[in-house]
Write a protein that binds this DNA or RNA. Structure first.
Length: 630
RNA sequence: CGGGGCAUGGCGCAGGCUGGUAGCGCGCCUGCUUUGGGAGCAGGAGGUCGGGGGUUCGAAUCCCUCUGCCCCGACCA
């Protein structure tokens, strides 16, 4: 057949465009005809409009070369496989192939949310400013909130989240404890004007999110609802085939009580997680509890000595200069806190090899609103500059001294002398200076003892794909959202909120499932289940006919099949299908056909196998049964 | 917002310092050959070199300015 005949290649008259022997055709007034198919996946007569699953009818925009803008593997592969295209900073178009995957993620999320008892609804993306002013977030949220004005000059925002709208709905519609508890969710486009969007849809400004909110009569019911959603999330990420962990999380700006994040483990992750190597403990390092790494404090053995240390500023320099281990030095960080008597300094002491955790600092009583001191403030109070600061001899009436648990357990340590160019060595708490206030101040490091006493903490990177919060009553109180309780009293709702980054999941999945040839989709979110690849189909009618018939058979067995009818060279076709990452590939060729065989190869790994038709169907069936997602 | 970089056919890049008629690979179109891992040969189309201003006989190249995008830090699904 001549290449020019490609476009108008006549279809087999006995086959419809789906490869079926016959199909029903109905006429639509003024709009041509529609072909209807019987779908045997469902037992009741079920008709569906012909889906576009032939490669020639699908906009497959694969790229041989990587666009220069993409840094991260998932971003590169999503562009190359033709899942997404960028429109502008942090804004992406989902191409037909990518949208299929996005929809499959949505489907799993919907099914599990529904199963948990939550009900789907859909709220406006644009929200009036008044609601945000009522909750107090109009001023608090900052530049991340995209603010708009309509033609009447009334202020609105494009919703980055929907606590206000849902609370407003609840206070209007929920009046009695009899209507509680209730959980509502939606899957919707959100916009957050991120400081720095990056990594494709991983951190886009516009993204697809599943957000859920629950309303309860009391704290117990809230804890109960939280558990249910937590379980639903675990099922969702399991079904999606992701390697994930739920970790304790900081409640951050949203506030509230208990909170967990769900992370997909991946090197490219932006979060650091602390996971116990032999127990259940798992937390974001932002709040992972740091125990003292020392068994106890050893008794003093050295005399307090002041030594000259010209030009020494860091603990590393100090340790090298004095020839002592870094673990025998303490660093002093100076903060300013507001007190009733005016601004006062606070010294935070950490062991030389440890770093301050700002989230923890903000939880120390008296230091919630503290800030780093300026050099001028430090000199005025301590008489020396950064590099030579320490806790010795400070006026404890004026200065608060807080030591990290480990720092408080060090003996015979070296620390700044509050005299430029000098440090003290052989310093001991209790002997040379008063015992400090002790707090958990530092960020955990790999190998720290696990806070639950079981094993050691290992640090791993994760991509946050879900977050669950027990909000409590802050929104309901601010927005006066109340119901009538059993005893006739008026009470505010106890609320929970729960998010899943639907579009981010796609990127996270690619990050976790790829090889040098392209994406290797987990079954549940693959854009197609099976790729059908006929070789030499342009010259061999038999191959084409067999492909059409197999395509038909697979579809009738409920598989979503990408039939590659592009009549490309085998190498090009295989490279494309590998890049796209469809789990199962079936090859047809004249040689195979003559032997009455098909070639099967799984995208994930193993070598190809030559099978008979019935063997192939059994293999696919077994695979489907093994995978809980399908 | 601070720091760094980039902008040249659809994609990936060279050219720029030293101004003088814009080039390579891939892709695309046509024809012939080829046909199981990104084919070969021949022919062809496609670029106001991100926008504006300036210097110059002459600017992709030098100067000014604006815009967009990417990377590194403070945010979050």
């Amino acid at each position: 057949m001549s290449p020019s005949g490609r476009r108008e290649r006549p279809r087999e008259p006995s086959l419809d465009p789906c490869g079926r022997r016959s199909s029903e055709t109905i006429a639509l007034p003024g709009r041509g005809t529609l072909q209807l198919l019987q779908c045997s996946r469902v037992s009741s007569p079920f008709v569906e409009i012909l889906p576009r699953m032939r490669a020639r009818d699908l906009s497959l925009f694969t790229l041989k070369e990587t666009p220069a803008e993409a840094e991260l593997v998932s971003h590169r592969l999503m562009l190359r496989a033709g899942l997404i295209r960028s429109l502008s900073q942090g804004l992406y178009t989902w191409l037909p192939l990518g949208l299929r995957t996005l929809r499959r993620v949505e489907r799993v999320v919907r099914e599990e949310m529904d199963r948990s008892g939550a009900q789907e609804l859909l709220m406006p993306a644009i929200q009036p400013a008044e609601l945000w002013q009522e909750s107090g977030r109009w001023d608090k949220y900052g530049p991340e909130l995209l603010r708009l004005r309509d033609r009447h000059d009334r202020p609105y925002c494009f919703g980055p989240t929907h606590e206000e709208v849902i609370t407003d709905l609840a206070r209007r519609e929920l009046r009695s404890y009899r209507q509680l508890p209730v959980a509502w969710y939606q899957i919707q486009t959100k916009f957050r004007d991120e400081i720095r969007p990056r990594f494709g849809v991983m951190r886009a400004r516009e993204f697809l999110m599943k957000d859920a909110y629950s309303f309860h009569r009391d704290e117990t019911s809230l804890a109960d609802g939280y558990e249910k959603i937590f379980a639903a999330y675990s099922r969702i990420f399991t079904r999606l085939g992701l390697d994930f962990r739920a970790v304790r999380a900081d409640t951050g700006s949203i506030g509230g009580r208990s909170s967990h994040e769900f992370h997909v483990l991946a090197q490219a992750g932006e979060d650091l997680l602390a996971l116990s190597d032999s127990g259940p403990y798992a937390a974001n390092v932002e709040l992972a509890e740091a125990l003292s790494v020392l068994p106890g404090r050893a008794p003093p053995t050295q005399p307090l000595t002041r030594v000259p240390t010209p030009g020494i500023r860091s603990c590393e320099d100090l340790a090298r200069h004095l020839g002592i281990p870094l673990e025998k030095t303490l660093k002093t960080l100076v903060f300013v806190r507001e007190t009733s008597a005016g601004p006062r300094l606070a010294l935070l002491l950490l062991r030389g090899d440890h770093t301050l955790n700002e989230v923890k600092r903000a939880k120390v009583p008296g230091l919630e609103e503290a800030r780093y001191a300026t050099e001028e403030e430090i000199r005025r109070e301590l008489g020396a500059g950064p590099g030579s600061l320490g806790p010795l001899g400070v006026d404890l009436q004026r200065v608060l001294v807080v030591a990290d648990r480990t720092a408080a357990a060090v003996s015979d340590f070296a620390v700044g002398a509050n005299e430029d160019g000098y440090h003290d060595t052989g310093v001991n708490w209790g002997r040379d200076l008063p015992e400090p206030t002790v707090a958990d101040l530092r960020t955990v490091v790999d190998g720290d003892p696990s806070p639950d006493g079981r094993g050691r903490l290992r640090l791993q990177r994760g991509i946050e794909v879900g977050h669950v919060f027990q909000l409590g009553t802050q929104y309901s109180e601010r927005m006066n959202a109340t119901f009538r309780d059993e005893d006739g009293s008026e009470r505010v709702f106890w609320m929970g909120c729960y998010g899943i980054g639907v579009s981010r999941i796609v990127a996270a999945a690619v990050e976790q499932n790829h090889d040098e040839r392209g994406i290797v989709w987990p079954a549940a979110m693959a854009p197609f289940d099976v790729a059908l690849a006929p070789v030499s189909s342009q010259s061999d009618t038999g191959v084409r006919r067999a492909a059409e018939s197999l395509y038909d058979e697979l579809r009738s067995r409920g598989y979503e099949v990408l039939y590659d009818d592009r009549e490309l060279r085998a190498g090009v076709m295989f490279a494309d299908l590998d890049l796209i990452g469809i789990p199962h590939r079936i090859v047809l060729s004249p040689r195979l056909l003559a032997a009455d065989k098909l070639e099967y190869v799984a995208r994930r790994g193993s070598a190809s196998r030559e099978l008979r038709r019935d063997e192939l169907f059994r293999l696919l069936e077994d695979d489907r049964r093994r995978d809980p997602a399908l």
